[in-house]
Design a protein around this nucleic acid. Structure first.
Length: 437
DNA sequence: TGCGACACATATCT
DNA sequence: CAGATATGTGTCGC
């Protein structure tokens, strides 16, 4: 069923790309590569690595969901393999033209309905000012390939020792640092030379149709990470961007209305959350959710609302459900989820319907999500009683990256955004992270 | 049903 | 601790 394995190159994916242990955010499908790249005579395969950082939660319908009005963020990076230091990269588009030297590379984000066949969906980025500020369309962001070292190579260590202080020489990308970066104000986190780009404060311009819990045909969106190469002729003033490859996420649902309309589910915010719930009503808000917290699902008014006002305590109600925690699956059974993520799922958009038909009928694979072995949490959440999500996974992720040298730096830089790092770390307190890993 | 704008609430930062 | 900042979300009107 999984039909689309997409591209000819279903790359082996980078090890780290698919986080084994934790996906608390929608996974990505296999990459699709459109053109061949060569470097000094050797074929080079680009591998896109993307991760949705926040904004999505696993709904009761077993679908990755987010609210149109909430922000989500995506981290993108890519690598080339083999890695040829200082080599020139060429793109072999049409047979008729000879190879064209790649002057620069960039990544961008887009979205579409029902996969490839669907219409493109606009994504917008807000500035911290939100409504008051301008909304910018997504644009290409120059990005350098991630050097080896953190990738799947186990030799990481070895390499590091070797390489002198600086980073490993990258392939030649003459215009990589040209113009563009002049952007005065990019809502996205960019650092001049990084191997990773964080698209932040992104929102879908519109919600998926038929979000209501009706069984009508629910529409799905896919986030698509695109990798581009600029092959502009030196004498051209305008860059010539060629799409090299893309990697789409699993299908997701974008809700247009307030969370209160979905009282049952809670966004558990994955990674972050600060905000509160609004509250003006008597309601309870769900405090951030529990992801970490104590109240896990708390609030979501399930009915109780009312009167008392306060409330929050109420919460109990089964909250578990949200399982977002991927860890179980990923970490254990499939240790490297690469397969998982690469996976299966996509392509079947059609099949989804089947799933819809019955709530109870989960997709086999997913079923796992629902029932995870407690052990995992136990360890973790010793402090909380609620059975709920173990935020851990998040942490683990972070840990992983840092571990790998180069990447680490990338993350740090990304941190410029500061907020994010901060929040995650501070907010999610997972003392011992990665324990299970 | 979904959207946009406004307003309020709250977490976190400074 | 207070103000600023950032973000979530309730509400209203279309």
């Amino acid at each position: 069923m999984p039909l689309s394995t997409s591209g000819p190159y279903s790359t082996p994916l980078l090890g780290y790309a698919s986080q084994p242990s934790s996906n608390e955010t929608p996974p990505f499908n296999a990459q699709e590569t459109y053109v061949d790249i060569t470097c000094e005579g050797t074929a080079v395969v680009p591998s896109i690595d993307a991760k949705i950082e926040k904004g999505f939660f696993w709904s009761n319908d077993r679908v990755w969901t987010c609210y149109r009005r909430n922000y989500f963020a995506v981290n993108v990076s890519f690598s080339l393999s083999p890695w040829i230091a200082n080599g020139r990269l060429y793109l072999n588009r049409n047979s008729n033209k000879g190879p064209e030297q790649i002057q620069a590379m960039a990544v961008s984000l887009s979205a579409a309905v029902d996969g490839a066949t669907g219409k493109q969906i606009e994504l917008i980025q807000h500035t911290p000012k939100r409504d008051k500020g301008p909304q910018l369309p997504m644009k290409k962001e120059h990005l350098q390939p991630t050097p080896p070292g953190k990738s799947h190579n186990d030799h990481t260590y070895g390499l590091n020792t070797f390489h002198s202080t600086t980073q490993i020489a990258a392939p030649q990308l003459p215009l990589q640092n040209e113009g563009d970066q002049s952007n005065q104000y990019s809502p996205t986190t960019h650092s001049s030379s990084t191997y990773q780009h964080a698209f932040e404060r992104i929102q879908f311009k519109s919600a998926t149709a038929n979000n209501g819990k009706r069984r009508a045909q629910q529409q799905y969106y896919h986030l698509i990470v695109e990798l581009w190469a600029n092959v502009q002729n030196p004498r051209d003033s305008e860059p010539t961007w060629v799409k090299i490859a893309t990697r789409s996420s699993h299908h997701v649902v974008v809700r247009g209305r307030s969370p209160s309309h979905y009282s049952n589910e809670g966004p558990h915010n994955a990674g972050t959350s600060r905000g509160g719930s609004g509250s003006g009503l008597g309601g309870p808000g769900h405090p951030g959710l529990g992801s970490n917290g104590p109240t896990y699902g708390g609030g979501y008014r399930n009915g109780m609302s009312g009167s008392g006002g306060a409330t929050m305590g109420g919460g109990m109600y089964r909250g578990n459900t949200y399982s977002l925690d991927p860890s179980p699956v990923g970490s254990h059974s499939v240790s490297s989820s690469s397969s998982l993520s690469g996976g299966p799922v996509e392509g079947l958009i059609d099949n989804h319907h089947m799933v819809d038909e019955e709530d109870n009928k989960p997709i086999d694979g997913y079923d796992g999500y629902q029932y995870f072995p407690a052990p995992i949490f136990e360890g973790i959440q010793s402090k909380m009683d609620a059975p709920a999500l173990p935020p851990l996974p998040e942490r683990s992720i972070k840990q992983e990256y840092p571990g790998t040298g180069a990447l680490a730096s990338g993350w740090q830089i990304g941190g410029c955004g500061s907020r994010f790092q901060g929040m995650e770390s501070s907010r999610g307190y997972y003392p011992d992270m990665v324990a299970h890993y």
